[in-house]
């Protein structure tokens, strides 16, 4: 991630409900269909459980639930984005992956003050493309460590 204003970044855009989000394409390793996960006991509601990714036990986070949005039971049409976050591999459950965007760092606007605190924790900024509003997600806080301890 470069900080220069005119730098171009490639982002991967995805949908949860009717909202569109995106993350840096470099942090996404692969995209795969939903497979039933093994639930983990005593875990936050957005932890969908763990799946087997070629021998790796991969925890699945329902990103919509993590953002505090309404979610439904995952179906075969749901998508898991396998992302690399701080040395760990995590599966992010989203409704669909919609696009690969190229974006200028300068076009990102800070998150307006209207968003809920929970959203603001993860949304680094918003920008618009073709009239759509897309939120740029910071993945660093997606994993539940701190929250789990605070709870």
């Amino acid at each position: 991630m470069t900080e220069a204003n005119d730098s171009q970044r490639e982002l991967i855009a995805f949908r949860i409900g009717r909202q569109e989000f995106c993350v840096d394409i470099m942090s996404v390793r692969e995209i795969r269909g939903w497979t039933p996960a093994t639930p983990l006991p005593r875990s936050p509601g957005y932890m969908k459980g763990v799946i087997n990714l070629r021998g790796t036990v991969l925890p699945i986070i329902d990103l919509g639930a993590r953002f505090g949005l309404e979610t439904s039971e995952p179906t075969a049409r749901h998508v898991i984005m396998v992302a690399h976050i701080g040395g760990r591999m995590v599966g992010l459950l989203v409704d669909a992956v919609s696009d690969i965007l190229e974006m200028n760092e300068a076009s990102v606007q800070p998150t307006p003050d209207v968003a809920s605190d929970q959203v603001k924790t993860f949304v680094k900024g918003i920008f618009s493309i073709d009239g759509r509003m897309i939120s740029l997600i910071e993945l660093d806080h997606i994993l539940p460590h701190i929250e789990a301890e605070a709870a």
């Binding site: 005593r42 036990v57 760990r88 994993l143 789990a148």
Partner: peptide, 13 residues
């Protein structure tokens, strides 16, 4: 397979 590698310790597991 460790759960801690990609997630964290889970009580009872």
């Amino acid at each position: 397979k460790s759960l801690e590698t990609n997630y964290q310790q889970v009580e009872g597991i």
